Amino acid sequence: MGALILSAKKIGLIAGALVIAFAAYMIVNVVWKGAVPTIGMEKGEPRVVNLVTGEFKAETKDGQEIEAYRWDPGTIFVEKGEAVQLNIFGVNGQEHPFYIEGTDIKGTVQQGKETVVDVKFDKEGIYRLICSTHADTSTNGPMIAYIVVD
């Protein structure tokens, strides 16, 4: 039977691999706790999500002007039961009457003003924030944001 012979080089490589594995373990399990808010949140305060109304304009090859209205961001992720405050600022368009599908929440965002909506979803799913003025392509939409609750 051959004897196990470890050279200094092999010992160094094994020790280095162990140090790297331990460092990776520490980073993943001790230091990094996943996504954290970049702003301070007081305990019990709702998480604030800022949205704006936006407009895209373009001209086709034949000179026709086309436009589309959007919510930005277009997708928001929240936890089931999490208190969330949507602060929606009107940038483009005079006003955007909206509702959140599957809820009783309705409102209107006006240009140059901020509309604040407090929400808490008790069921998982995808809820659509829909501007009723721009509900489809015939009205320069769809102006829909998705609120993903899990």
Rank of each mutant, 00 (worst) to 15 (best):
V30P: 00
V78M: 11
G125Q: 01
G90E: 05
D62K: 12
V52I: 14
K120G: 03
A15Y: 05
F56N: 03
E67A: 10
E65I: 15
A68M: 08
Y25V: 06
D104L: 10
W71C: 03
T75W: 02
M26N: 10
G40N: 03
I20M: 10
R70G: 05
G107V: 06
W32F: 15
I20F: 10
G54F: 11
S132P: 01
V52P: 00
Q85V: 09
F56V: 07
G40V: 01
G81L: 01
L13C: 02
L86M: 08
V91D: 02
N140V: 04
E42M: 11
I39W: 00
T60A: 14
E101A: 11
R47W: 06
V109P: 01
F121P: 00
G141S: 09
P73N: 08
V109C: 01
A3L: 12
A83Q: 13
V91E: 04
F77N: 08
K61W: 05
I14T: 12
Y69G: 04
P73W: 07
V28I: 13
P142W: 07
Y25D: 10
A145I: 07
T108E: 10
V48P: 02
S132W: 05
H134T: 09
T139A: 14
I126L: 04
M26T: 14
P46N: 07
Y69A: 04
K57C: 03
F98G: 04
F121R: 05
N92G: 00
A23I: 15
T139R: 15
I14R: 02
I66H: 06
N140R: 14
V109Y: 02
V19Y: 04
E42R: 13
G12K: 07
I130P: 04
V19W: 05
L18W: 07
Y99E: 14
G112Q: 10
L6Y: 11
D104A: 14
F22E: 00
Y127M: 02
F56L: 11
F98L: 04
R70T: 12
G54H: 10
I126H: 02
M143D: 11
Y69L: 11
F56P: 00
Y99D: 05
V36R: 03
R128S: 13
G81E: 05
E67N: 08
M26P: 00
G74A: 15
K33A: 11
E45N: 09
G63W: 09
A58E: 06
I144E: 13
T108A: 03
G102V: 05
Y25H: 12
G63T: 08
I14L: 15
I76D: 07
Y99W: 07
I39F: 02
E95V: 00
A83L: 12
T137S: 09
P142M: 09
V78Q: 03
T38G: 07
A58I: 01
Y146G: 00
I144W: 13
M26A: 14
Q85W: 00
E101M: 06
E95A: 04
E67Q: 13
E95N: 12
V91L: 09
D72K: 09
G16M: 09
V109W: 00
V19N: 04
E101H: 06
A21I: 15
